[in-house]
Write a protein that binds this DNA or RNA. Structure first.
Length: 656
RNA sequence: GCCGCAGUAGCUCAGGGGUAGAGCGCAUCAUUGGUAAUGAUGAGGUCGGGAGUUCGAAUCUCCCCUGUGGCACCA
């Protein structure tokens, strides 16, 4: 006999060799029907798997989050079975669950089209209707490899071969279809709710390596019931409305066009956001002991050779020959013989040149050198994405030259500045990552040990939770990465903080120590926002375009109701503008309803409505975005100025 | 760069081997209206580019470009 303990503390004794299904049936017929999987001492197991030992048991139904995960996993299996039935010769590979759904990677010469989805979904429903039991089998490694090899499933055979020796090899069978899988699974295909849909088709490299074969990945989403599915699809549509590319058009912020692929044309409204953000960071860094510099766009290739980037990243640099182009139309414009320069992809070597200019003393350290540096990188075409991934971008960059002993304090100091800036911007969901030494790297292990320890200690002292990203550091040092999420849940790196013992060496930067000898400084590369472009994209999506007043391009729209008050409207606008607010007037011959709608849709935070009443008593009616007409407030022009100026003050200047 | 999808008016999109469509926007006129679309009239596109099939291509085929969703990459 064994004894099972239930979540409510009850204990029951069962014959050794009973299954989860037996236990559920023993409790109630309805539970027997609803049970999908059991959790035994924290391990999820198939309902029909024999329970050999005593332990804590939990019987999971569709209401449990873990069960939803299983449903998604089973959906992936059913998808694979459907695809193999419909497209003979297709090989299966892996099919895990992801947030909100699942995918499955297939190998097939001819690939697939989204036009195939309807037929595949129909077959999936048929497989569910077959309600075939899903059974677990334990196989020996060699037999399993032989089985899949015989079936022509070379990818599966490779997977098994690479499993650790200790791993138990389990196969799951549903009807005639069999797959290598760790499990667990639902008892039968019929338990899968018909609340799934295939969403998209994409290429994905086998084992994530671009040298390997390209597989065909089908993504799907699956839920407990059709209502949940509909809700999820609706949420996706809503999220798309926050897309910065769409809002960028609607709010007249920026555009991109073929002739400057991957670069942004900032319109007046968009550039106003840029300026507000840039000036904010400029104030914050100045206050924190940085000095701002400006360095050249075009630099001789020797700097990139020295830094090591020429070797590693030359294929994504814009290289420019230093040569007078041919004046005539005949023949090539450039001979190609000129010495090579490159548009800077980063600011570091240029900052080192400033550091090296004139002798530096240990008394100058830490030396914090900042630049809003415009950089160019020839990103792969498939990587370009709105403002998030561009070929020309501006970093709120800075380099701190310091001694080894100063690294910890500087890191803590930076983390404080960083956290406070993001707080002011209203961004709270930040993922901190510590990226450690990559396989190919410069510098000794001892140096890396020291650098990684310093960053981890600073994070701990700053009280920040972080995740480790082993092997993802830069070749010259470990990094801290600061990631933010866009409207549809994609994660983007914004800020960065990198420790570098290599570049000062390679570019021969030194300072005179108290001992009178030359020493190497440590270089800290850091950016709070990262790329201005990407950060603004994130801000737009975070606020769904409804930017706080201090960031909004147009803060107030003064709108007369009839044309008799046009002159007064202009006076009000002039008074607000004189107080430093960004104001426009809408004197068009349109009805007030129309104007309110239009300015609300273009996300202008405050509409100042003026009519005859306001003209008579020298007032304005302020209508705030999202609050509606009921919450509008009447006040004198002077009161409006006081109130709006207060709201429009950047967070770092409040109370000053 | 790789795989899927898309490209028709400024924007959103319909259409589809035989004279290019709608709504919004824009222009003009009328209207002066108190809080999310006033009405009328008009202008605007050789349907992303190139080649091919055809009597005839925006439509079919191929190549290229760009965008887009992923994958890979991201100093």
């Amino acid at each position: 006999m064994i004894e099972l303990v239930f979540p409510d503390g009850h204990r029951r004794r069962y014959a050794k060799g009973c299954t989860g299904a037996d236990v559920a049936a023993d409790i109630s017929p309805s539970l027997a029907k609803a049970a999908l999987v059991v959790e035994l001492d924290g391990e999820l197991r198939d309902l029909n798997r024999v329970i050999e030992v005593s332990g804590a048991i939990r019987i999971l139904t569709i209401r449990d989050e873990e069960a939803l995960e299983l449903i998604r996993h089973d959906c992936a299996h059913v998808l694979a079975e459907a695809v193999q039935e419909l497209f003979p010769g297709t090989q299966v590979t892996i099919g895990p669950t992801i947030t909100h759904g699942f995918y499955y990677d297939f190998a097939r010469e001819d690939g697939f089209s989204t036009d195939d989805f309807a037929a595949i979904e129909k077959r999936m429903v048929e497989i569910i209707d077959r309600d075939q039991p899903i059974t677990r089998e334990v196989w020996s490694r060699d037999d399993a490899i032989a089985l899949f090899t015989k079936m022509g499933e070379t990818f599966k055979a490779e997977l098994i071969r690479d499993l650790p020796e200790t791993e138990e090899i389990t196969l799951y069978r549903q009807g005639n279809w069999v797959d290598l899988c760790k499990g667990p699974h639902l008892p039968s295909t019929g338990k899968i709710p018909k609340a799934f849909t295939l969403q998209k088709l994409a290429g994905a490299y086998w084992r994530g390596n671009s040298n390997n074969e390209m597989l065909h990945r089908m993504y799907g989403t699956a839920w407990r019931n059709p209502k949940e599915l509909r809700l999820h699809l609706h949420q996706l549509e809503e999220a798309e409305k926050r897309d910065h590319r769409k809002l960028g058009r609607d709010m007249k912020l920026f555009h991109a066009q073929d002739e400057a692929q991957g670069s942004i044309f900032w319109h007046a409204n968009g550039y106003q956001i840029w300026l507000a953000v840039e000036n904010y960071i400029r104030r914050r860094t100045n206050e924190d002991g940085y000095r701002e510099v400006k360095t050249p766009q075009l630099l001789d290739k020797k700097f990139w050779e020295l830094s090591g980037h020429w070797e590693k990243f030359r294929d994504s640099m814009f290289v420019v020959p230093d040569e007078v182009p041919a004046a005539g139309d005949e023949g090539p414009v450039l001979s190609g013989d000129g010495p090579l320069m490159a548009l800077k992809p980063m600011n570091c070597p240029a900052h080192v040149q400033i550091f090296k200019h004139g002798q530096k003393s240990y008394r100058d350290l830490p030396l914090r050198m900042a630049e809003f540096g415009c950089c160019h990188r020839n990103e792969p075409h498939g990587a370009l994405h709105g403002l998030m991934r561009v070929r020309q971008f501006t970093q709120d960059d800075a380099h701190i030259f310091c001694t080894d002993e100063q690294v910890l304090d500087e890191t803590i100091r930076f983390l404080k500045l960083f956290a406070s800036a993001y707080d002011d911007m209203g961004l709270t969901q930040i993922k901190y990552r510590l990226a450690t030494r990559p396989v190919i790297r410069a510098g000794s292990d001892e140096v890396w040990d020291r650098a990684e320890t310093a960053l981890a200690e600073a994070l701990n002292k700053a009280g920040l939770e972080y995740e480790l990203a082993p092997g993802e550091g830069a070749f010259y040092g470990p990094k801290l990465e600061f990631h933010l999420t866009d409207a549809i849940g994609r994660s983007w790196q914004c800020g960065t903080y990198q420790l570098d013992y290599v570049l000062p060496e390679r570019l021969d930067a030194s300072y005179i120590g108290p001992d009178g000898d030359k020493h190497r400084p440590v270089m800290l590369h850091r950016a709070i926002l990262g790329s201005m472009e990407r950060f603004i994209g994130i801000l737009i999506e975070h606020y769904a375009g409804n930017l706080p007043l201090w960031l909004a391009p147009i803060q107030v729209m003064v709108t007369p109701i009839t044309s008799d008050v046009d002159e007064y409207a202009q006076q009000v606008a002039d008074a607000l503008a004189a107080a430093g607010l960004r104001v426009e007037t809408d004197l068009r011959n349109e009805k007030i309803n129309y104007k309110i709608r239009e300015h609300s849709l273009s996300k202008i935070p405050v509409i100042a409505v003026v009519g005859r009443t306001e003209l008579e008593d020298g007032s304005v009616a302020l209508r705030f975005l999202g609050a509606g007409a009921r919450h509008q407030v009447m006040m004198s022009v002077n009161e409006a100025i006081t109130r709006l100026c207060e709201d429009a003050t950047p967070p770092d200047q409040r109370g000053k």
